[in-house]
């Protein structure tokens, strides 16, 4: 009898723990506050000051895969084209690292492509009017 009651109590504790776990999961917050993610955000934020005019001119657009792409090379003077390509490459490297880091910070590296897809959609949805975004393969001006 004594054994049974101690197990009943133990079982209740386990059930309570499961409920608690379910509640935490229901709140559903993704861990994004790691030093690596903070560094990437900072670097992207600083680069944005130089990318924003390129988004506005249509030279650079937001691609469907969560990256940025040179959309209209003709609108960039030849002398600056290398610099713009460098900006795009650096931005895409940061973005790839960001998606990877978010998946890793949450203990699921295999979520990277899901994170990328989510970001791709949100970058495009939240792009400012006049910016170019890629929708089902075609470039569209918002």
């Amino acid at each position: 009898m004594k054994v049974a009651s101690s197990f009943t109590r133990w079982f209740a504790v386990v059930l309570f723990g499961l409920l608690l776990g379910g509640a935490v999961q229901a709140q559903g917050n993704l861990e994004v506050n790691t030093p690596a993610i903070a560094t990437l955000k900072q670097s992207m934020q600083q680069r944005h000051a130089r990318l924003a005019p390129l988004y506005a001119s249509g030279a650079v657009g937001l691609a469907a895969d969560g990256s940025v792409a040179l959309r209209d090379a003709g609108s960039v003077p030849l002398a600056q084209r290398g610099q713009v390509n460098g900006l795009i490459a650096a931005e895409n490297a940061d973005r790839a690292a960001l998606y990877r880091e978010i998946a890793r910070a949450n203990g699921h590296p295999e979520w990277e492509s899901d994170v990328r897809r989510t970001f791709a959609q949100r970058w495009i949805d939240r792009a400012q009017p006049g910016w170019w975004v890629q929708k089902s393969g075609a470039w569209v001006r918002k």
Partner: peptide, 13 residues
Amino acid sequence: AAEKAADRIIDEV
């Protein structure tokens, strides 16, 4: 949750 996190990061960037 990923969408919320993405929005927070996009706000900042």
